[in-house]
Each structure stands twice: as structure tokens, then as C-alpha cells.
């Protein structure tokens, strides 16, 4: 008993102060990308070619006339889909002109799938709060039932981290619960394998309405590394309406927490 008390004193209080203070991110952390297409030579598609998951649309001439909203051959078409992006170093390493760099800004979550597409000079389109009625229901107490649908256990691990003393998710009134009957929302990780589809849908059905759905990580958003495997469904939004998309492979815990706080209207601005 005395040993435990002594250990408690020694270990101290070390819960992150986020969002009151920012979480220090390592220099090499790859967060929100910065795109600069001004130096992209005609016909260059090095970044798109190395991307392992097809998250990049090149900024210059391309045989695909449907490439981007601004028509064929404009550099502004360069874009990264953060819903597919694994935040690996491939594209930034491959581009000799530094057209793609990753800042260490971890705020990435969005409400709409299309808000995850990043173009040069874009305004940030981070997640907005739930509508007023949902906010009055869930704003002070939000319970999730998590379903891992073919996740690699990294999204699961960094979701679990939020409930440790390092993050103490409970102080925001957010909690992960065992029964879908006790839940207000479904938390999905993984690309949704064919073998997990029925269990995922059954869990969703078991949650009482109104309910929300969070797609946590690249897999749950669009299949992640397993995109287009015939065994997976390329993410949950093909099957269920999604209220919050949290990019990353896996998302950093602060990316997840930031998204949740925005969804609950507890955090605004960039």
C-alpha cells in the first residue's frame, strides 16, 4: 500500500493539457500536407506514381480529362486525398521539387468525405460541430461502441490510448462502452472485411437512434493499405452514413481527440 502511494507520488500527474496547450509533436511527424504545384513540370506524375494507395492526383497534364475541377493541365489540380493517404514518406521523398511536404500539424479530421481532399492554397476544412439537437443530446456525454472491422490493431491501439491517464478522455464526457445498447455512436476501424461486414452492420443496428458513426483511420475511411482488395469494402461510408472522418495510418491520438472535440463543439478554428 505504501509502495503504491510512493509510486503514485513519483509518477505524478501527467495527463496532457490538450486542448488548453498544444501537444508537442516530433519533428518527423507527418501531418497536414502543404502543396506547392508552382514548380511541377509538365507531364510530371512522380508523386502519383509512387503513392502506394493512389491518394495523389498529379498537378499537370494528364490523359484523364476528368482530372480535377479546373480542367486539364492546370497545376492547381495537384491534390492529396487525406482519406486515402497513409502519411508515408513516399511522395515527399520522390518529388525533387518539394511540391509536397508534410507539416507536423495533427488536426486533420473532417465531417465530409470531400473535405479530406487537399489542394494547393486550400482553406482548412476541419470538422464542424454536430447540429444543435445532436449536440444537446451528446455534447456532455457521448458513448461509443468500437468495432474493429479488419483493422491492423494500430487504430485500435491509438484509440485505446485516449482512455489511459495520459489523455483521460473521460474528462470530456466521452467513453467507449461494451454494449451497443449503451452507445450513442459506432466507432469503426479497419477497411470492413467481407468477413466482418455482417457483425459491423448488426452492431450498428443494435445502437439506439439517434446515433453517429466515426470512421477512424485510413482503412475505415477508404480501405487504407488494403484499398481495392477483393476481401474488403474500402471503408465504412459505403455501408453507413459517417459523421466524422479521422485520417491517418493510424491517426495520432491527438488527431483523434482534436476531431472529437470539434465534433462536440469544444474546439474551433485552425
Amino acid at each position: 500500500m505504501f509502495r503504491a502511494i510512493a509510486a503514485r507520488l513519483k509518477q505524478g500527474h501527467r495527463t496532457t493539457r490538450y486542448p488548453a496547450e498544444p501537444v508537442p509533436m516530433p519533428d518527423r511527424f507527418r501531418g497536414y500536407p502543404r502543396l506547392d504545384a508552382s514548380a511541377c513540370p509538365d507531364g510530371c506524375r512522380v508523386c502519383a506514381d509512387v503513392c502506394p494507395v493512389g491518394a495523389i492526383t498529379p498537378g499537370t497534364r494528364d490523359s484523364d480529362p476528368n482530372n480535377g475541377p479546373k480542367g486539364l493541365g492546370t497545376r492547381e489540380n495537384l491534390s492529396i486525398d487525406l482519406g486515402k493517404c497513409l502519411f508515408c514518406p513516399d511522395c515527399s521523398e520522390a518529388c525533387p521539387r518539394g511540391a509536397i511536404t508534410y507539416t507536423n500539424d495533427p488536426a486533420l479530421a473532417a465531417n465530409r468525405r470531400e473535405d479530406l481532399i487537399v489542394r494547393p492554397g486550400d482553406e482548412r476544412r476541419l470538422a464542424q460541430a454536430l447540429e444543435q439537437k445532436m449536440l444537446s443530446l451528446f455534447g456532455r456525454s457521448l458513448k461509443f461502441r468500437e468495432v474493429s472491422a479488419a483493422g491492423c490493431n494500430a487504430c485500435e491501439a491509438d484509440t485505446n490510448v485516449l482512455s489511459t491517464i495520459g489523455w483521460d478522455l473521460g474528462r470530456f464526457g466521452i467513453q467507449f462502452v461494451a454494449s451497443p445498447r449503451h452507445a450513442d455512436g459506432l466507432w469503426v476501424t479497419g477497411p470492413v472485411s467481407e468477413n466482418m461486414k455482417d457483425a459491423l452492420l448488426a452492431t450498428y443496428e443494435a445502437i439506439p437512434a439517434p446515433k453517429i458513426v466515426v470512421a477512424c483511420g485510413a482503412c475505415a475511411i477508404n480501405g487504407g493499405p488494403f484499398i481495392d482488395s477483393p476481401e474488403v469494402h474500402n471503408g465504412v461510408d459505403r455501408l453507413l452514413p459517417v459523421d466524422l472522418f479521422i485520417p491517418g495510418c493510424p491517426p495520432h491520438p491527438v488527431t483523434i481527440l482534436d476531431g472529437l472535440l470539434r465534433l462536440l463543439g469544444k474546439l474551433e478554428g485552425a
Partner: peptide
């Protein structure tokens, strides 16, 4: 959790092979 990793490796290595190796067990 079956994602068809081994089937997809036939004819590889592919562009996505390494990221799938990294996430075979994440």
C-alpha cells in the same frame, strides 16, 4: 480480419506491398 494479403501478393511485389507488410499486424 481476413484482408486477402497473400492472394494479393501473387505476381508482386506491387506498389502497395510494403505498406501491407507494415500493416499485416500493425
Amino acid at each position: 480480419q481476413h484482408r486477402g494479403i497473400e492472394a494479393a501478393l501473387l505476381g508482386g511485389p506491387h506498389k502497395n506491398t510494403f505498406v501491407r507488410m507494415e500493416t499485416t499486424a500493425g
